[in-house]
Structure formats: C-alpha cells, structure tokens
C-alpha cells in the first residue's frame, strides 16, 4: 500500500494506492474519490458500546472500511474542514487523539475511546478521547496546520490546540502564570506534558473562527 498527503497544510488530502487485500478504515463521510472495484463496508466497528463511546467523543458512530479486490485500486480521503493532515506510523505504541482529529487508519490499529478523566473536562475538551493503538498507519486531520514537537522533558501546549500525543507522555492541566494570568491572560488552560514522546498541535482553532463570525450574524427581528 502506498499513501501520500497532498496540498499540505491548507487543504490536505490523503491518496492511497492499494495492494490486493489491503484495507483502510475511515471516518464516515471522508471518502472523496475511489476506484469502483473497491469493496466498501459500513459498520459500527468494535460493536455498539465502542460506537456509542465514539459518538460521545465527537467522532462518527459508523466507520467505513475499504478493501481492495485487486492491486492498483485507489482511495482519496478528505477531511471536513480546511486544514492539515498528518501521517503517524504506529509500531505497537499508542497515541491519544483529540476529538474530531481522527481521520483514517489501517485495520491493525484499534480505535478505542478512553475516559480522559476530570482533568480533560477542566481542559475544556471532551471527556472522552480516542485511544489509537497497535501496528499500522494512522492519519490525523485538523483545522489549521499540524505542528509536531518532540518532547524530551516537559512542554506546555494550549489545550484548544492539541491534536494528539504519544501515550508515553503524561500530562497535567493547569493555567499559565499566576492568578492574574488565570483570569486575564486570555490563554485559558494549558497542558503540561512530561516524559519522552511527540505532541502534535494545530496552529489555529475552530472556536476562534466561530467567534469571529458571530458578530456578523444578523439579528432576529424583535417581536
């Protein structure tokens, strides 16, 4: 199987050329183009519970699996929002993925939801994060460009910008600076990672775009 990401970082899309028998699992609605011979199956991967948990983590309940009946068939995948995509190769390891950032993976990777704990609630993120583990390829997507930082020691990332991180990293949620910064810095909460591993973060956040558009909305007429 060959795969390439084109048009990074503004309008990234994933282009896969299969060998016979290869499969790729994608989020519902992510297929942009495909060879007609490709076999597509829609299912609640992992059963009802896993699907329900996925729904809670802001991902689709149904996932699509594409399997090649012969070599050379292709699949083109596009995420919903303008922005970047990133390929992550897993070899028995695991990454934790922020809600909405999962795009596709090979079947060797188990996508499960994990309880982020109360600290993820404090971080203003979903309570449930996706836990992707196993061996194979994983593709992430985001609004904005995706930037990878190799952490060795400690590193701080604004919570609204986190896309994914290696499970080998531990994290705590805190505010930056003192009390005054907590109230007035406009920075919200940050995640402090420690250990050795990668953190992927996005250079823009969708809520900021929504906030920008809000004042342009027309007002409802008064009754």
């Amino acid at each position: 199987m060959q795969h390439e990401i084109h048009n990074k970082p503004d309008f990234a899309s994933l282009h896969i050329t299969f060998d016979e028998g290869d499969s790729v699992v994608t989020e519902a609605g992510a297929m942009m183009g495909m060879s007609p011979g490709l076999k597509m199956e829609t299912n609640m991967k992992g059963g009802l519970m896993a699907a329900a948990k996925r729904a809670m983590s802001g991902e689709s309940v149904f996932l699509n699996t594409y399997t090649a009946s012969e070599s050379g068939q292709r699949l083109d995948v596009a995420p919903a929002s303008p922005g970047d995509m990133e390929h992550v190769a897993l070899d028995g390891g695991a990454v934790v993925v922020q809600r909405g950032s999962y795009c596709a993976c090979t079947p060797g990777i188990t996508v499960d939801s994990s309880w982020g704990g109360w600290k993820s609630l404090k971080a203003g993120e979903g309570l449930i994060m996706l836990h992707c583990s196993g061996t194979g390829d994983l593709w992430l997507s985001s609004y904005g460009a995706i930037h990878c930082e190799e952490v060795d020691g400690t590193y701080v990332v604004d919570t609204s910008h986190i896309v994914a991180f290696d499970e080998s990293l531990t994290y705590t949620v805190r505010s930056i600076g003192g009390l005054k910064s907590l109230l007035f810095s406009g920075e919200g909460a940050v995640c402090e990672f420690s250990g050795k591993g990668r953190v992927w973060f996005q250079t823009r956040s969708a809520p900021s775009l929504a906030e920008f558009l809000q004042p342009f909305r027309k007002l409802q007429p008064k009754n």
Binding site: E149, G153, T154, Y155, V156, V157, D158, H161, I176, G177, G178, K180, S181, F184, S185, G186, E187, G188, E192, V199, F201, T203
Partner: peptide
C-alpha cells in the same frame, strides 16, 4: 497579545499585565 500563545517550554514564565 492575550490568547496568542500556542505552546512553550515549561521554564518560560508568564506575567499578565
């Protein structure tokens, strides 16, 4: 500008003023 920070080294201190 407030709210512009995306990430930083842990030993960087922040003062809001």
């Amino acid at each position: 500008e407030g709210g512009a920070m995306v990430s930083m080294d842990t030993h960087v201190t922040v003062e809001t003023t």
